[in-house]
Design a protein around this nucleic acid. Structure first.
Lengths: 215, 215
DNA sequence: TAGATTGTTAATCGATTAACAATC
DNA sequence: TAGATTGTTAATCGATTAACAATC
């Protein structure tokens, strides 16, 4: 809320704190110290305190952090206390996998539409939502409030659709296409480049093999 | 190849260089300077030169980098010049989506098995590979060389299966389960925590809204 | 040769860790 | 109160950027 700029590294860690705190809640743990949490998460206690203090003092000296309170507060910081209407562009395997992932709904990410270019898919329901032709997208966006678009289309199609999304006032794009998108700075783009993740894995694999073979 | 330790940040950037070089090749571009590439990729030229020089001098003063050569070399660094036999654990939507992604095969990631716990799926073919019961996994791993396991199972099941994979000598796990895995340091784990990615997007969304509302 | 551009060292910037005073 | 643990400042570490000599 304050003007202080939070680093990308900190933001990337917040959801992980949130996940661990959720698990602690399930285990009925009421409070935890940065030290204990640091051991669970394999990070330093110092980093935890430093990270959390970017957003305010959630702990109490001599006591630690109240798990439920901290969980709720991080949830708010992450914007999980509001509804985010969401559409999927590309009803292939990946699009359907994401549509069927129920936990998103639980966190406020509400799927309101699914679109594809393939006429064969038109009218087929996924999670109770009928797949529509992508040509209907601009119209749909005018009639419905849409905040996030999930892009699970081939890369050439993806760039083209990103343009249309932006023209129609999309707020954020979760991009699974194997390409970078051009977007103005007021449109949030979060990339999930799966093949790049697999290549990083492959690098580490080769690296490890070399280190333990050569010599 | 040398003992020099490459930072994780550099490794994460390599696949992106690889992607851009691939695109340049498609466009028949023969050579490129760090400066031109930096403009395309929205990074500094200095970073590109610094990154590449971790692995050796691929460029030439006054000329720049030969696109095809650099592409090939980065491919080798990423281990894309060797075959990586791969299995999928969890034949749900996501598992099938990954099974059907043809580009992996092209890069040397060869799918050799798909497993699930659901007996209904037994024998069904995905990309010409029959889904097997997960109970057959240890046997399969003894009979076949398997390097990478893709984990697309619910989190409780995932931890359990990771243990079995490790006992049977898996080299790397590409983990899509919403949990961290315990693995010895000689087993590479690459996590894809999709919900965390979506939460980071959500954070940025809320953040942007605040900055442009309050004042 | 002159011009271009790398490879590489040095300077800067940012992020992580350590330390400790404040305080519950 | 004494003990525990945070919040926060200072020190360290690492990564990015700038600068430029080397060299094609």
């Amino acid at each position: 809320m304050e003007a202080k700029e939070i680093s990308k590294a900190v933001v990337k860690r917040l959801p992980r704190y949130y996940r661990y705190l959720g698990e602690l809640m399930e285990e009925k743990v009421e409070r935890i110290s940065s030290n204990d949490l640091s051991k669970k998460m394999h990070v330093t206690a110092s980093q935890i305190r430093q990270d959390l203090n970017n957003f305010g003092g959630f702990g109490q000296q001599g006591y630690g952090y109240n798990v439920e309170y901290l969980y709720t507060e991080i949830g708010k910081i992450l914007g999980l206390d509001t509804i985010h209407p969401m559409i999927i562009l590309g009803a292939g395997n990946l699009g359907q996998a994401l549509a069927n992932y129920g936990d998103f709904e639980k966190r406020g990410f509400r799927l309101v539409g699914i679109f594809d270019v393939n006429p064969v898919l038109e009218g087929i329901s996924v999670r109770g939502i009928e797949i529509q032709m992508i040509s209907r997208l601009p119209e749909f966006m005018k009639e419905n409030q849409v905040e996030i678009a999930i892009l699970t289309l081939p890369k050439n199609k993806a760039k083209e659709m990103a343009k249309i999304l932006i023209e129609n006032g999309i707020k954020a794009i979760w991009n699974f296409a194997h390409t970078d998108l051009d977007a103005p700075e007021d449109v949030i783009v979060e990339n999930v480049h799966l093949s790049e993740s697999l290549m990083a894995l492959s690098y580490n694999l080769s690296q490890y093999r070399n280190e333990h073979t050569e010599k």
